[in-house]
Amino acid sequence: MNKEFKVLAVPYKVWLSILVFIPILAMLFISFSNLSSSVSVGELTLSLAHFKLLWESSTIIAFRNSLIFAVATTLISFVLGYFIAYEIKLSKFKNKFILLTFVILPMWSNLILRTESLANIMSENNILKNILGFNLFGNISGTWMAVLFGLVFTYMPFMILSVYTALEKIDFALEEAALDLGLRPIKKFWKVVFPLSFKGVVTGAIMVFLPTLAGFAIPKILSRGRIVFIGNIIEQKFIYTNYNHGALLAVVILFFILGSILLITKFDKEGETLL
């Protein structure tokens, strides 16, 4: 590409530097200091006092919950999402874009509305039971199953999109060559198709993993407030204007994010194919 176009990136570099770097530095400072609305500039000190929050049992359990659910959601979304993406790729329906939009369309409806309606039909007496005469979900409202179901079916479209994008790039000639070499379809899939689409899986996994890890609305509504994620605690800290604690937890989450970005670069040396 013509080097002349470098200038096009300059505004974006400035934009990113200001809006990404400065807030991160500010967060780090807030989480290490006693800065708050009642403290004047002269009294500012650096301390590790806020770090005792990290040993609070609720914080540890919230982190554990977030991690377990994020991993489980990612694994399930991978299995189901890959299956759907593969079916879309194989489908005889020509216009794949329509199928993909169909997959992503539920995400255009408000998340809270969708989650609340899920919570409704998962409880004992609900509108579907009233119509159908039986309970589609049993009475799982408030349990981990409800939360897991909600998370998987909310974020799976990301997995489907990224896996499909990777699958689309695979050359059909390769598949045919594999078949010509006498590979059975299942073997062909594992030996040829899956490795080639793995980058898409990693991307999709990260796009499912992170919103699950940092989210707060879905677990709160579907667990009826009984399963606490780290996002719920951060939300509460910010609402009660305890920015020191909020920033600290946000920084910890940021570590996870940096970790996953490193993971991306490991699989994709240029870190450019998140999608």
């Binding site: 590409m1 013509n2 080097k3 002349e4 176009f5 470098k6 096009l8 990136a9 974006y12 570099k13 990113l16 530097s17 809006l19 990404v20 967060m27 990260i206 796009m207 992170l210 940092a214 707060f216 996002g231 951060i234 939300e235 910010f238 909020g246 946000a250 989450i253 940021l254 994010i257 996953s260 970005i261 991306i264 670069t265 040396k269 240029e270 870190g271 450019e272 998140l274």
Partner: peptide, 24 residues
Amino acid sequence: ALSKKVRVLWMLLNNVPILNADIV
């Protein structure tokens, strides 16, 4: 149009807004 090394760095930063927690 940037050289590959510089580009990788900026693309990493480009991921932060997507991956960061909304409320933060």
